[in-house]
């Protein structure tokens, strides 16, 4: 079943002059058709200004289409009556952890969303405990968020989204400000939620190696879908990717360099483990 479905989605950003007359129009998304199946892990790539974040903001109705429709869990986002149901169903985690945490105690921060929806106290406590357990932060429930590392804060932000019991979470460059171990923590958390809780994950990122672990990779360019396929399919189209301002993962670059020197490696190789495995296999044949 499709949890997100965009049909003919167009979004224009319009600039106005002092008298509120429109002076310029920029098409951030143009006639995009895209369906995302429930339970999938989808990475969205694209250069700055390609329309990634604009698309993401439609998923919980922060933006509404200029033309076309978007449904989330079968609900039309343009229908105001659906607003709260859609925001409950689709959570979002943004780039800067410091901008998403509002309470002075971790568990209160996680409780903020459901509490505002009037979830009864008993149920609320249960949800907070489960959400913190799911991101591995139970031990920090009573701590102050400002003492946590970047990766830990981002996991609290994810727990806050989880406490709403969403079926889908959009991560909009949620690892951009983290150190290597913080990034690892957050990416591992995304995968676990996808695998174990069946939550649909939409990961918007500039890190090619984060896209490698997805079920599906979509590359946007100028408000259109330029590429769409499995990581293997997408990263095999080197030239096209480079033309779109993307890069190959470092390991893929190394593997391609080795292939160019005559090593018969399968293409494309996307992870370190894969390359090591293939090299060992080749070596054992000599």
């Amino acid at each position: 079943m499709d949890i997100i479905k965009a049909s003919g989605l167009t979004h224009d950003y319009i600039t106005y002059d002092e008298d509120e007359r429109p002076i310029s129009v920029r098409h951030a998304l143009e006639n995009v058709d895209l369906a995302i199946e429930e339970g999938q892990f989808v990475a969205i790539l694209g250069h700055n200004g390609s329309g990634k974040s604009t698309f993401a903001k439609h998923i919980n109705a922060l933006l509404l289409p200029t033309a076309g429709t978007v449904t989330v869990g079968g609900m039309d986002i343009a229908d105001e009556a659906n607003l709260w149901d859609i925001r409950q169903l689709a959570g979002m985690v943004f780039q800067n952890p410091d901008n998403q945490i509002i309470a002075t105690v971790v568990e209160e921060d996680v409780a903020f969303g459901p509490e505002n929806m009037g979830v009864p106290t008993k149920e609320l406590e249960k949800r907070v405990a489960e959400a913190l357990a799911a991101v591995g932060m139970t031990a920090f429930a009573k701590e102050s968020p400002n003492k946590l590392s970047g990766g830990q804060k981002q996991r609290i932000a994810i727990a806050g989204a989880l406490a709403m019991r969403p079926r889908c979470i959009v991560f909009d460059e949620s690892t951009a400000m983290l150190d290597p171990s913080g990034r690892k923590e957050v990416v591992a958390t995304m995968h676990r939620l996808n695998r174990e809780e069946g939550i649909t994950v939409l990961l918007i990122t500039h890190y090619m190696d984060e896209a490698v672990g997805a079920d599906r990779v979509i590359v946007l360019d100028g408000g259109h879908i330029a590429m769409d396929g499995t990581p293997k399919q997408v990263f095999a189209r080197t030239e096209e990717l480079l033309n779109l301002g993307m890069q190959l993962p470092k390991v893929t670059q190394l593997a391609n360099a080795l292939t160019a020197e005559g090593l018969p490696l399968p293409a494309p190789i996307l992870t370190e483990e894969e390359l090591i495995e293939e090299l060992c296999r080749l070596r054992s044949k000599i």
Partner: peptide
């Protein structure tokens, strides 16, 4: 909580598998 470049990881992996490689390289 830091790491090494990806290509260095590949060399370290090969070393673990018993190959005699220099694990101090960082460029492609």
């Amino acid at each position: 909580g830091l790491s090494v470049p990806k290509v260095t990881e590949v060399l370290c992996g090969l070393k673990t598998r018993g190959f005699d490689v220099d694990t101090g390289l960082i460029g492609i």
